[in-house]
């Protein structure tokens, strides 16, 4: 083989790790893909969440694509064990459990997202304000203190009991149950977000931004919010699962939703079938499993998201599978101190 000139040392100082410099608007997606590939559990969580969301949308648009029977449609078979015709069995009224479990998907997932989402928006906004403008003897400090005392009042009740009481007083119905849980849910987000803000707002880079002349509101969004976002998103994802459990509990205890009815829901199904638990266990097994799978999937996804969102742990993931070649010797005297950090230093 003929002698060829050695390759030019093209920007060897910058990066030798494949994928690490893929920047631009799609960069988070790239990393997300990598994290999923390297972390099978998060991948499973992600797939299950996607499947559930897809199924929920399908069921909402056209139930007949996935569901053989309507929520209160007689199948003609009573108390049947799971079979090919009725994968989750049937109940004493002749309703298909599989159809009802699937039909409950949009209700339950929607409730989970709606409650956690509104609580995040309301509580999170209040938490940002209470955490960022909290200097004593200022208007902000007064607002902050009043907000926190208000959340204390809400937090001083056991949230499930409070939610149950509100459900009872509001009457039956999905909306009422959602309102009841929301009323007990937002204070946690105030506390969470405020705590994160307090931890971040005294970081030197906040002072540095102030010294640069950046305005307070911009500091709040560009520096504070951005740095607290990942624990909050992770918490939110996990929280969707918690909301599902709480809602199922409330549906079980306070019966805000009539089952069997037009909108099946997992908690109310378990309530309705509880008497048959020993005789026909599949009737409560499958709605219970549905809650379990949903909660588990969201928590796995939350863990995966944490790795995507944090650039430091992101690197650990991105680098692990692609064994980077050692940096070539650098014949460059201009910037002696700019070594890329060695992998074990991160």
């Amino acid at each position: 083989m003929a002698f060829t000139a050695p390759p030019p040392p093209a920007a060897p100082l910058i990066d030798h790790r494949p994928g690490a410099r893929r920047s631009g608007p799609l960069e988070p997606l790239w990393t997300f893909g990598r994290v999923l590939v390297t972390n099978p559990l998060s991948f499973a969580g992600f797939v299950v969440v996607l499947l559930m969301a897809g199924a929920a949308v399908t069921v909402q648009l056209d139930p007949r694509l996935l569901v053989p029977y309507g929520p209160t449609q007689f199948t003609g078979a009573y108390h049947q064990a799971p079979s090919l015709a009725h994968p989750f069995g049937t109940d004493e009224l002749g309703f298909d459990t599989y159809s009802n479990v699937l039909l409950a998907l949009p209700t339950d997932l929607g409730i989970g997202f709606a409650i956690a989402g509104v609580a995040l928006l309301v509580g999170g906004t209040l938490g940002l304000i209470a955490g960022f403008w909290d200097r004593p003897r200022t208007v902000g400090g007064a607002v902050s203190v009043s907000l926190l005392r208000l959340t204390d009042i809400f937090l001083s009740f056991p949230s499930l009991v409070l939610a149950l009481a509100i459900t009872e007083s509001l009457g039956r119905g999905v909306d009422q149950a959602i309102l009841a849980i929301l009323a007990t849910w937002w204070p946690y987000y105030v506390r969470l977000v405020r705590g994160e803000v307090l931890a971040v707002k005294h970081q030197p880079y906040i002072t540095a931004a102030r010294a640069a002349g950046v305005g307070e509101v911009r500091i709040l969004f560009r520096h504070v919010l951005r740095n607290i976002l990942d624990p909050i998103i992770v918490y939110f994802t996990l929280d969707v699962g918690t909301v599902l459990v709480t809602f199922s509990t409330i549906a079980f205890v306070a019966k805000p939703i009539v089952y069997p009815g037009s909108t099946p829901e997992w908690g109310s199904m378990i309530y309705f079938y509880q008497d048959y638990a020993s005789l026909y266990p599949w009737l409560i097994l499958f709605p219970g499993l549905a809650v379990f799978v949903a909660v588990f999937a969201f928590s796995l996804l939350g863990d995966g998201l944490r790795d995507v969102l944090d650039p430091r742990s992101r690197r650990a993931f991105v680098r692990a599978p692609t064994v980077a070649p050692p940096p070539p010797p650098v014949p460059f005297a201009g910037a002696p101190s700019l070594e890329p950090t060695p992998p074990e230093a991160t």
Binding site: A11, I14, D15, R21, R315, G334, A335, P336, L338, E339
Partner: peptide, 19 residues
């Protein structure tokens, strides 16, 4: 300041203390 001009898109943790 002695930094290469094409590290625009890097994050601070990719640098040493001096960087």
């Amino acid at each position: 300041v002695g930094l290469p001009p094409d590290c625009l898109y890097q994050y601070p943790h990719e640098f040493s203390g001096g960087g």
